[in-house]
Design a protein around this nucleic acid. Structure first.
Length: 431
RNA sequence: GCUGAGGUAGCCUAGUCCGGUAAGGCGCUGGCCUUGAGAGCCAGUGGCGCAAGCCACGGGAGUUCAAAUCUCCCCCUCAGCGCCA
């Protein structure tokens, strides 16, 4: 949520920034917000005048009665006030609600370094790392590959739960856990505090962390309960300090979330191939930071570096993309995507998303900064980044490290987490 | 799920039975005094508004000239019981 004081004091600057997103409905909403905010303040004023009169009359009434004086005239005026007030209050409430809707629907202010562009085709590649490996010429799509070796079952998952679900089995499960453990260990070593968050959130905290459209497009809701399955541990972790005043001296707070993530994503892109790349349920190790406003650009780079280091240690080539103005979501002011090299597909695909949400998320959540019990008006910044998400990362490992003789060669950093073995030897199933 | 107790400012608490417009403490800020960021004393300390002022006691509706206070509905928290890996 944007700072209403900023919108009032410098509407042109906000409008110009919103325009860079190349999304006209936002501009229309912004214009309406300016009007509704004025209407609301006026209605508030008018209702306030009536209330003041009511308070005065009520007091006079009480005194007159005590003194035994005639109260007829006062009574007549007092009787006429509630009806007027009811109408004005209805207007006030209407404007206030609309104002809030509009404010919650407006996107964050974009950082100046975000490249101007219309959609994901205009994102800017700012860095590449590593040597692109090649996959065995006959390597099948990973879904088939896993099924043929008994490491995954997508047919039965589809039968039982629908498309986008999977059974992972055998050594692939250990590989999944190994990848997560490596990611978590790296973060702990860098001073992050591990967090297992709630896997479901109520609506109120959820509205604070994400785009309202996600309630329709992304999140699964629990039938008959005010609960939503989390789409990422970013969400419950951001809500960890909802409504609180954070001690400035304790910042930055670095947290490493581990959780399953659940996503419907019906509004997403086209259907992906069978398998474990794009799924309704996955596991993610997440970096999350609450920090002072002035520190967030630096910490954004830090989170990106952490995620890069993870891919480097695995030995997977990647590139860093600065997501352009037209492709950024509502919450982030700036976002890097790390795209890993997938040799069999011969292209880079998203493995990591690293965002600086500035004060937008924290303001929606009502988080402020203060010092030793003194509430301040400064709102902290929040940042989040994938460290690793599985099973997508497993697909990358398979494409990068599958050998021609039916093994998956393990990157050295993973071996300690896999009982010291150098590779996964694949069981061959009878056709 | 049942029973009970609760939800008041950054925090803790009084007020609720009996309606009259939120008392006090802690913390924080400023001032006085001081060798002093200590003690003591004084003042300030939520939101909106240029201001007068209005709003704010978990949320909503109602009664009333007037609601933290009375009525109804809902939400949440805690404790005990029940169920349970």
């Amino acid at each position: 949520m944007l700072d209403i004081d900023l919108i009032r004091s410098d509407p042109e600057r906000v409008r110009a920034n919103i325009a860079r997103r190349r999304n006209d409905p936002y501009l229309a909403r912004f214009a309406e917000l300016l009007a509704v905010d004025r209407d609301w303040r006026k209605a508030q004023q008018e209702a306030g005048d009536i209330r003041r009169r009511r308070n005065t009359v009520s007091k006079e009434f009480s005194e007159a009665k005590k003194a035994g004086a005639d109260t007829t005239a006062l009574r007549r005026e007092a009787d006429s006030l509630p009806a007027q007030l009811t109408e004005l209050e209805a207007r006030e409430a209407l404007f206030e609600q609309r104002r809030r809707e509009l404010l919650m629907g407006l996107p964050n202010l974009l950082d100046d370094s975000v490249p101007y562009g219309k959609d994901d085709t205009e994102n800017q590649v700012i860095q590449e790392w590593g040597e692109k490996r090649t996959a065995p010429a006959d390597l099948p799509p990973h879904g088939e590959y896993l099924e043929s070796h008994g490491l995954g079952d997508f047919e039965r998952a589809r039968r039982n739960s629908g498309a986008g679900f999977y059974y992972l089995m055998g050594p692939l499960v250990q590989l999944d856990m190994a990848v997560q453990r490596l990611a978590m260990d790296m973060l702990v070593q860098k001073g992050f505090t591990p967090v297992i968050p709630p896997y479901m959130l109520r609506r109120a905290p959820y509205e604070g962390v994400t785009d309202l459209a996600d309630f329709e497009n992304v999140m699964y809701r629990i039938e008959g309960e005010d609960l939503y399955l989390i789409a990422t541990s970013e969400h419950p972790i951001a809500a960890l300090h909802m409504g609180e005043i954070l001690d400035e001296d304790r910042l930055p707070i670095r947290l490493a979330g581990i959780s399953p993530c659940f996503r419907k994503e019906i509004g997403g892109h086209g259907v992906d191939q069978k398998g474990a790349f794009r799924v309704h349920q996955f596991q993610k190790i997440e970096q999350f930071v609450f920090c002072a406003p002035e520190d967030s650009p630096k910490i954004h780079e830090e989170l990106r570096t952490n995620a890069e280091e993870f891919l480097q240690r695995l030995g997977i080539a990647y590139r860093v993309v600065n997501v352009c103005t037209g492709d950024l979501g509502i919450v982030a002011a700036k976002k890097y995507d790390l795209e890993g090299w997938f040799p069999r597909q011969g292209k880079y695909r998203e493995l990591v998303s690293c965002s600086n949400c500035t004060d937008y998320q924290a303001r929606r959540l009502g988080i402020r900064l203060g010092k030793r019990g003194k509430p301040g008006k400064v709102v902290p910044h929040t940042l989040n980044s994938t460290m690793v998400a599985t099973p997508r990362a497993l697909v990358a490992i398979i494409e990068n490290f599958a050998t021609t003789d039916g093994r998956i060669a393990l990157p050295e950093v993973l071996r300690p987490y896999m009982g010291g073995v150098r590779d996964i030897t694949l069981p061959t199933l009878a056709p």
